[in-house]
Amino acid sequence: MYSEKVMDHFQNPRNVGEIENASGVGTVGNAKCGDIMRIYLDIDENQVIRDAKFKTFGCGAAVATSSMATELIKGKTVQEALQITNKAVMEALDGLPPVKVHCSLLAEEAIHASLWDYAQKNHITIEGLKEPKKDIHEGEEEELSV
């Protein structure tokens, strides 16, 4: 069902953990739908992401996309991190099964939510960053439960 890369990132997830006094923390998803992702960022004065960590409650794909997302944003500037889309996360993992595409969207949302928290804490605006939705499954669930 999963690519080798997904299985690798699920079995040996990179960057699991927390960052104390993080520059930004973002949590997305909800337990009702079975996945929650939290990303912690450590950002230096030049707006470069020095470190990123994550905690995820969810399926194999949710863990793997969190792991890959944190890998992709480490060392990037805030602006560069903002450009990382769910497609980039999926491609880096050699694809996801169709039913798991929402996990990659969750990863993108988690990056945005953590950047938003960073911007809020520092009273800055990051160009192109919108306030994250509280729960990306709101609406989606209603559509599916017809």
């Binding site: 997830p13 337990a31 929650i36 939290r38 905690k55 995820t56 409650f57």
Partner: peptide, 8 residues
């Protein structure tokens, strides 16, 4: 659980 934000 060590990976779970709910547990944290």
């Amino acid at each position: 659980r060590d990976m779970s934000p709910l547990y944290e």
